[in-house]
């Protein structure tokens, strides 16, 4: 199979991984005020862990190096303790009127979101660049 856009596979996997990261962050923001999950505990902040993904060599234009992509190894729970808020009227309040809320810092989540979005953008720039390079190379034959 001809390979016109080389090096795209790694970028594609990075785009996918960053998309999952953004989904997890959006989940964290959405659940920042959830005091009761199905297990009765407050929502636990989640974060993604990336790992390298060695795709098999596809032949063609290769220099003997397999393309190293990235994938989400696992989505793990942040083990920080819940934040206790005094709210006696709340359904989940304990005897002292304290409610356990998830310890989610919205600023931290927004900073993570910006980082994920910028990384996504950088990978898009790689795709754009590869496309431009291929088209410019094709224009050698034009007159």
């Amino acid at each position: 199979m001809i390979n016109v856009l080389t090096g795209i596979n790694a970028t594609s996997s990075a785009l996918e991984a960053e998309r999952i990261r953004m989904e997890v962050i959006s989940q964290n923001i959405a659940n920042a005020e959830v005091s009761r999950m199905p297990d009765g505990k407050p929502y636990q902040r989640q974060q993604v862990v990336f790992e390298t993904l060695l795709t098999q060599q596809t032949g063609g234009i290769g220099n003997g190096v397999g393309e190293t992509g990235v994938q989400v190894a696992r989505i793990e729970k942040d083990q920080r303790a819940p934040r206790l808020v005094f709210n006696p009227g709340h359904k989940d309040a304990d005897a002292n009127g304290m409610v356990a809320m998830p310890d989610i810092n919205i600023h931290e989540e927004m900073a993570d979101l910006i980082s994920a979005s910028r990384t996504f953008e950088a990978n898009l720039a790689v795709v754009r660049n590869a496309r431009t390079m291929a088209l410019q190379t094709l224009s050698i034959g034009k007159r």
């Binding site: 016109v4 856009l5 795209i8 594609s12 996918e16 898009l124 088209l135 094709l138 034959g141």
Partner: peptide, 26 residues
């Protein structure tokens, strides 16, 4: 199918088609 994968596939098809057209022109 994620959005970026569809777009990349379409872009690859477009570039390889242009390559074929160039070969034909030559």
């Amino acid at each position: 199918v994620p959005l970026h994968q569809a777009v990349i596939a379409a872009e690859e098809a477009s570039v390889s088609f242009q390559l074929m057209v160039e070969v034909r022109n030559k």
